[in-house]
Structure formats: structure tokens, C-alpha cells
Design a protein around this nucleic acid. Structure first.
Lengths: 194, 194
DNA sequence: CGTCTATTTGAATGTACTCAAAAGCGGTGG
DNA sequence: CCACCGCTTTTGAGTACATTCAAATAGACG
């Protein structure tokens, strides 16, 4: 198993000794999953964080009308999990699904807690990860209030150019907060104008 | 100066020795501000986190059409700051303003970094604070996509009952992501029905 | 191929916004 | 203490952005 990607991810924020790196990877579990398979289902308690090595996952909720809303996409080098459920250890409302065939690593909550005790630097690492994610999330909330659907789409294209031709439109729509039909109309308008 | 409120806030997640508590409060600065005064202005670099003792602050952005969008209210016992600007030390887009006459404590970034080194438990404390804030923020994003304005308003009433008769409607509207006019119409409809 | 799902297109509808004007409310100064 | 000013809230009419429903077309996968 090749742990280089996750070690590189971690080295962005903290520096591990070889021993610490060794100890860390010993806590991970490697898995593969086929496209369209669920890793975590609404109503379950989330017991782990996931780190994507290759492929792509998505986290989404389903509202009372059966509409899906995408909270996040996790391509390679991203962490994902149901943070509400992880913190509270109560059943969550998040589904996590593979959009493509995906390789990923699992860090269980139990191991994560051990890590905090054994190598306190990880406390810092995850604080920074969460901080960055919070910033992105806040920006998305502001955008949802400040921008039109068409502006949000153009913004998405600019911020995630690598995802735009990789994801089904339906799921980009579910991320932007519009219906697939409306996104389709938006795109055809944008193609005519410029 | 009475540091009991902030020490109580901290004791929710970590336990400090008397010495550590002493060291911590020595890093804080106490301030008061009158209603309608700005603590932080768009375009400035945010150099501190604020902890509210009494009164109420709000964080908001102004979009290209001049519309205000409230990112958060901070009544007593809440932390607030422009986390984007704090992390990057770049100019932020957040304004922080006193809604009421407010007493608060300032923890500068410099002191916060010292705290992480001197008392690593604080790394954990702020990780947990940020984690909880992220969960709330994610939920708000999901709500903005799943719920109608009227559902979001009723939800706000349920989650923040103490704020509902304390804040100007205008600012509740700016938090919910609707115009003040529309919120007013919503309320009058809701008063007729039940 | 054939089936199933995703995307496109169109018409009708609805939710929320804009603009405008009136009414309410709070603070300030005479 | 009251009158006035400025700001917030309410109300109404017309509009726009986005949804719903329906049906046709295109793509993907076994």
C-alpha cells in the first residue's frame, strides 16, 4: 500500500518524524469502492473520517421532498466524513457515495482520538483542516445569498475546473442548489451569449 | 474585570489549572463598544478573535448590490472573528458590528499562537469550537437549499428564541437570506393561519 | 441492441424580489 | 414634553428568477 499521498497531505500543515509517520499509517485502513456504492448511509452513526487517494466521493442529504443536496465533493487528496455524526456519535443525515471507482483510507474515530493523545501535533493538523473547510463553507453560504444561480455556476467552473467535466450535471445542480432542468437552461443561455 | 464567563466557556471543553487560567486571562483585553459601532471593517486584516460577555455583535458582508448578508450573530458566550482573514492574514470581506452596547474580550492572533505553544490544550479547545461552528454552518447551508423562506424563519424562531424579539427584523432577514419586505409579509401570513 | 438514467426543451406556476408609498417607532432637540 | 427627523416595518402592484410537470432526445451500461 502506498501511503505517500496521505503523508504528503499531512505535511502541508505539520511535520512528522519517520516514527510518527509509521505509527500514523498503522492506524489506517485501505479500501476500494465501486462507483455508485454508499460508504455511509443516512441514519447511521459515522465512525470514521475518509481520505480519498483516487476517484471521487460525494456527501449529500435528502430533504423531505426527496431532493438531494450535495454538501461536498471529495476528489483525490480530500478528507470527508459526517462531522456532525462524528462529533455527537448520533445518527447523521449525510450519505457518502462513490461517484467514481474510488480508493480511500479510513481513519476511525477511535484511532483519531488515540492520535490526539499520542501525537498532539494531529490536534493542530485537524484544527487547520477544519478551519479551512469552515472558511470554504462560509464562503459558499455567502455566495448562496449574494449570487444568482448563473453566477454560482460560473464561480463553480472557475473554482473547480477539474470537476466540471467529470461530474454529472445533475450533481453539480444539487451542489449549486438548483434543479437539473434549470442548470441545463442556464448552460444553453451561457453558450449563446459569449 | 470578571473573567468568569470566558473561563466557564472554556471549561466546557478543556480543564485548566489555576496557573493556566491565570496565564490565559493575562492575554485578554477587555473592551466595551456602543451599539452601531464597527469592531472590524471590510478590507482590514483581522488580528483577533472576540468573545462576547454581554450585548450582541454581528458579522456581515455587503454584496456588489449593496445588500447586507449576516453570517452570524454573537450574543453573550459566543466567539466571533473573520476566520478567513485570521488564517490568511489577508484583508477580509467581513464587517463586525455591535447591535447592542456590548462588552467583549479580545484574544489577539499573536497571543492565540502563544497559547497553542504554551498550553497545547487550547489547540484542542479551538478545534472543538471550530468543529461545532462548522456543523452549524453546514446545517445552515443545507437549510438554505432544502427549506422555503418561511420554514427557515420558523426554524430560526425555534433555534434562537432569545434573539427573535431582540434583533431588528431587517437583520433577521439578512440572516435568513430574504428581503426585509418579504420577511414582513411572511410574518403577517403566519399570524393569520395558526 | 434494449433498458435505464441523464439531459434538453417548453409551457405554466410559484416564490421571492423590486419599487413605491404609507405607517409606525425611537431618539433628539427645542 | 412634544414635535420632528430618520429609520424600520408594513402593504400593494408588477416583475423576475427558478420550479414543476411533461415529453422528447441523448448517453451509458450490461
Amino acid at each position: 500500500m502506498d501511503f505517500a499521498p496521505i503523508l504528503k497531505n499531512i505535511s502541508k500543515h505539520i511535520t512528522l518524524t519517520p516514527d510518527e509517520a509509521q505509527r500514523f499509517v498503522s492506524m489506517l485502513e485501505y479500501k476500494q469502492v465501486k462507483a455508485r456504492k454508499l460508504l455511509l448511509q443516512e441514519g447511521e452513526v459515522c465512525k470514521s473520517s475518509y481520505f480519498v487517494i483516487s476517484g471521487c466521493l460525494r456527501g449529500y442529504t435528502v430533504d423531505k421532498n426527496g431532493i438531494e443536496h450535495v454538501l461536498n465533493f471529495a476528489p483525490a487528496d480530500w478528507w470527508i466524513g459526517d462531522i456532525y455524526s462524528i462529533i455527537t456519535q448520533k445518527p447523521g443525515m449525510l450519505n457518502i457515495e462513490a461517484i467514481e471507482d474510488t480508493e480511500y483510507l479510513i481513519l476511525s474515530m477511535a484511532n483519531q482520538e488515540k492520535l490526539y493523545l499520542e501525537i498532539p501535533k494531529f490536534e493542530r493538523f485537524f484544527r487547520i483542516i477544519i478551519q479551512n473547510y469552515l472558511v470554504a463553507n462560509q464562503q459558499r453560504l455567502i455566495d448562496s445569498m449574494s449570487l444568482s444561480a448563473s453566477e454560482r455556476y460560473l464561480n463553480f467552473c472557475k473554482v473547480y475546473p477539474s470537476l466540471i467535466n467529470r461530474l454529472p450535471q445533475k450533481q453539480i445542480a444539487a451542489y449549486l442548489g438548483v434543479t437539473p432542468e434549470f442548470l441545463s437552461k442556464l448552460k444553453s443561455k451561457l453558450n449563446k451569449k459569449p
